[in-house]
Amino acid sequence: MFQIIGIVLLFAMVFGSYIMAGGNMGIILHALPHEMMAIGGAAVAAFLISHSMTVLKGVGGGLAKAFAGPKWKASDYRDLLSLLFLLTKTMKSKGVIALESHIENPGESTIFSRYPKITKDHFAVDFICDTLRMMTMNLEDPHQVEDAMEKQLEKHHHEALAPAHALQNTADALPALGIVAAVLGVVKTMGSISEPPEVLGGM
């Protein structure tokens, strides 16, 4: 909701100040289709050239998430801590064998089923199960589990942020595309330099 309000406020402030300063919106509206084609169209084309279908789908889903708001709430984090507590308590009180059925088949686990929202997040469930599975192997080096967790999280974050980075790179290129559009406008105007000022101003 706040994102939509922010976008409306942004356009109101920019074009409102332009109108208050005596600007003519007719000129803006007349140039809008050509400018959007030169800048926006070129940006979309460059974006399609530069990225894979996976990233393109991620951008679409990411934009929907941006307007939907945060997925996780404070109660969800409490549920996650409760889930981890129950799993570790089961491992310590009943042994590794009792935990194995929960981490090997979390979809049918009585512990995981208490927290359906967490269970729907496949990465979170796989991450928890894989980590607990490593812990049950009694590795000699206790840092092996930590290193594996950090690498898995780093890989996940890299993949999850790829659409955002792609969109950021495109946004960074927009000023350059804007300069290209402006130069083309200058070229068009200079090609009609013999016209009167009224015509050149419109160009």
Rank of each mutant, 00 (worst) to 15 (best):
N138S: 01
N138W: 00
L139R: 04
E140A: 10
E140K: 09
D141N: 13
D141H: 03
D141I: 08
P142I: 01
P142Q: 00
H143G: 05
H143P: 05
H143I: 03
H143T: 09
H143D: 11
Q144N: 06
Q144P: 04
Q144T: 06
V145M: 01
V145Q: 04
D147Q: 11
D147V: 14
D147K: 12
D147E: 14
A148I: 04
M149R: 04
M149W: 00
M149T: 10
M149G: 04
E150L: 11
E150H: 06
E150C: 11
K151R: 10
K151Q: 13
K151N: 14
K151F: 05
L153M: 08
L153T: 13
E154L: 03
H156W: 11
H156E: 14
H156F: 11
H156V: 14
H156Y: 13
H157T: 13
H158Q: 13
H158S: 15
E159N: 08
A160S: 15
A160P: 15
A160L: 10
A160R: 12
A162P: 09
A162R: 02
A162S: 11
A162I: 07
A162H: 02
A164H: 02
A164Q: 10
A164F: 04
H165K: 05
H165A: 12
H165E: 06
H165L: 05
A166R: 04
L167D: 02
L167R: 00
L167P: 12
Q168S: 04
Q168V: 10
Q168Y: 03
Q168G: 06
N169A: 01
A171E: 07
A171C: 06
A171G: 09
A171W: 02
D172W: 10
D172V: 13
D172Y: 10
A173D: 13
L174F: 13
L174A: 14
L174S: 14
P175M: 02
P175W: 00
P175S: 06
P175Y: 01
G178D: 06
G178A: 07
I179F: 12
V180S: 10
V180H: 13
V180E: 09
A181W: 07
A181G: 11
A181M: 06
A182C: 14
A182M: 14
V183S: 07
V183M: 10
L184Q: 09
L184K: 06
G185H: 05
G185F: 08
V186M: 15
V186P: 06
V186I: 15
V186R: 07
V187W: 05
V187H: 07
V187K: 01
K188I: 03
K188F: 02
K188H: 03
